[in-house]
Amino acid sequence: MGRIAYVNGRFVPQGEAVVHIEDRGYQFADAVYEVWALFDGKLADAEGHFARLERSLSELAIPMPMTRAALTLVLKEAVRRNRVREGLLYLQVSRGVAPRDHAFPNPAVRPAVIMTVSATDRIASEARAAKGVSVVTTPENRWGRCDIKTVSLLPNALAKQKARAAGAAEAWFVDELGFVTEGASSNAWIVDEDGRLRTRDTNANILRGITRGSLLEVIRHEGLEVDERPFTPADALAAKEAFITGAGTLVLPVIAVDGKPVGEGKPGPVAAKLRRLYIEQAKAAAI
Rank of each mutant, 00 (worst) to 15 (best):
A98D: 14
G259E: 08
H221D: 14
V35W: 04
I219V: 14
P269N: 03
S125I: 02
K160H: 11
S118A: 13
R3L: 03
I148G: 01
P111M: 02
V191I: 10
E22T: 11
A108S: 14
V174L: 03
A29C: 13
H102A: 12
A242V: 13
Y26S: 07
R142E: 12
A286H: 05
T199N: 09
E176S: 14
K260L: 13
K283C: 04
V18E: 15
T137K: 04
A29H: 05
R110H: 14
H20Y: 09
N8G: 11
L252D: 08
Q14K: 15
A163D: 00
G15V: 08
A130Y: 01
A119I: 02
V32K: 06
A188I: 00
Y33W: 09
R81K: 00
R81A: 01
K149C: 02
S152L: 09
F50T: 01
R196L: 13
Q161T: 15
Y6L: 05
R128K: 12
L91E: 01
K273Q: 14
L153E: 05
R164I: 15
P107S: 08
H221G: 15
G246M: 10
R220M: 02
Y26L: 10
R10Y: 05
E228R: 05
G48C: 12
G41F: 01
N106A: 11
E126Q: 13
L153S: 08
I190F: 00
S214F: 07
V109M: 00
V151W: 07
G268V: 06
A98H: 09
C146G: 09
A157E: 07
V35E: 06
G223F: 04
R83Q: 09
W143T: 11
G41W: 03
G248W: 07
L153N: 10
A168K: 00
L224A: 02
R229C: 15
T181E: 05
A103H: 12
P253D: 07
H49C: 08
M66Y: 15
L207N: 00
G183A: 04
V117T: 01
Y278T: 08
N156R: 15
K131S: 15
R24N: 06
I62C: 07
E126G: 02
V113L: 10
I148E: 10
R83E: 13
L91A: 07
W189F: 09
R110D: 09
K131E: 11
E54C: 04
D121T: 01
L154D: 06
V218Q: 05
S118N: 13
R198W: 10
M1E: 04
Y26N: 07
R83N: 14
G2L: 15
N8A: 12
V226G: 13
Y26W: 10
S56L: 04
S118M: 12
E34K: 08
T150C: 01
L252E: 08
M64Y: 01
T138W: 04
V32L: 09
R220W: 06
K260Y: 07
G268S: 09
G87A: 03
K76R: 12
L158C: 03
V12F: 07
E22W: 05
K131H: 05
E217P: 03
L197D: 00
N156V: 12
L224Q: 02
N82H: 02
I4T: 08
L91N: 02
G2R: 15
A204W: 09
G213M: 05
N187M: 01
W172S: 01
A236V: 15
A238D: 10
F173H: 00
G183M: 03
A70R: 13
G246V: 07
E59Y: 14
R80N: 04
D175A: 06
E86V: 04
P269F: 04
